[in-house]
Computed example of a mutant assay.
Amino acid sequence: MPDDRADLHGEYKVVGGKLVIADLAVREGRLAQVRVSGDFFLEPDEALDDILAALEGLPADASVERLAAAIRAGLRPEAALVGFSPEAIAIAVRRALGAANTWRDHEWRIIEEIPVTPPVQMALDEVLAREVGAGRRPPTLRFWGWERPAIIIGNFQSLSNEVDLQEAERLGVEVVRRATGGGAMFVEPGTAITYSLYAPAALVADMSLADSYAFLDQWVLSALRELGIDAEYKPLNDIASSKGKIGGAAQKRFAGGTVLHHVTMAYDMDGEKMARVLRIGREKISDKGIVSAAKRVDPVRSQTGLPREEVIARLTASFVALHGGAPGEITPEEMAAAETLAGEKYARSTWLNRIP
């Protein structure tokens, strides 16, 4: 039976760029009646005809790479695309075909912070991500509650290279290893804002890993700007402002089809204690936002003047305004599974010391 469809519509907002819209039909399994529009800039005008001609008649199951390559090959040499790219057009086409979707295609749940131990925090990320992948939980935004001081090292970091274990033990700072890559974090209750997104892989379908970081951080950049912070994304995984680094993101793709994307931002950290428990080289001091080891690392508090709870409430409101969402909770079964996983994996020395 021929694959015939009509009135298909897809949109893609380029991170830091323009909106691209694709409207099209499918006739006998191929693209037809393709129209591309948006608030982008394109010179000369005739280059739009090149794009449409390149797409017309391509297989409806063509990948982003194939669609973008056809557009690029069909463009006249003098064509200038500003605020978008052939890949952005291809993603909009794929979204029109239903091969990728948007935030609003999902019914998000938002979980307020619950203080639990660091190993349970690590385990909750894995449990909730797998629950979303299995279809037992809708896509979720969860804010973390820190129950005690902790250092969280990245999945691939050397424990001895990153942490002064004797000093951490003396100061009562627990050390755990997370499932995602990236660098070490130091947190204490009330000093950081950490959240996780458990998103369907379809939300970032056809995006490169680098593009998916920027895409999934876009909402929080918008929220921080509303709070008066001139926040910006710095590849690959940093959130910063003109006054320095605010926080960093990390990500993991699960086989079940879930993307775990979590971010920690410094609200009001003890820079002197951070420098004592983390083995931070001189070249990384400025990257951690520490001008002097005696100073606090407080980009969110100092730039907003708001209590931490108010900042989280404003971030939540911004997410709901942009993408929708309703209050959610961790089920007793999920918490039990996380506690079990913490005992079997994240609290064990074999996991922590797997890269000594």
Rank of each mutant, 00 (worst) to 15 (best):
P119T: 07
V127L: 04
M122D: 07
G190Y: 11
Q251V: 07
K252M: 15
P200D: 09
M122I: 05
A214M: 03
I239V: 03
P189C: 08
F156T: 14
D206F: 15
P149Q: 06
I246Y: 00
G248Q: 00
G172Y: 08
L216N: 05
T140R: 04
A123I: 01
S242G: 11
G181Y: 06
Y195C: 07
A240R: 14
G181P: 07
P138E: 13
S208T: 11
A250W: 07
L197T: 02
I229A: 03
I152R: 04
T191D: 10
V204H: 03
R137H: 02
T194D: 13
A134C: 04
R225L: 02
L165H: 12
I193R: 01
T140H: 10
R130Q: 14
I151S: 11
M122C: 13
P118M: 01
V176L: 09
L197I: 10
S160R: 15
Y213A: 02
R178L: 06
R253Y: 11
L124R: 05
T191G: 08
K252N: 13
S212T: 03
T140P: 07
F156G: 15
T117R: 05
A240G: 08
G172I: 06
A210H: 12
A210E: 14
G247F: 00
D125R: 03
S242L: 01
S242H: 05
R148H: 04
R136D: 11
D206C: 12
E169G: 15
R130S: 13
F186D: 04
S158P: 05
S158C: 02
E131L: 11
L236Y: 10
A184R: 09
G133F: 07
L227N: 08
A249C: 06
L128G: 08
L165S: 11
L221Y: 08
R130K: 15
G154Y: 02
L128F: 09
T117G: 12
Y198R: 08
P139A: 04
A240M: 14
A214P: 02
K243W: 03
A134I: 06
L128K: 12
D211W: 00
T194A: 09
L141V: 09
Q166K: 15
G190W: 06
F186Q: 13
G183K: 02
E162Y: 03
K243N: 12
N155S: 15
R130N: 14
I153P: 01
A210M: 14
I193M: 02
V120A: 03
E131I: 13
L236K: 04
T180Q: 07
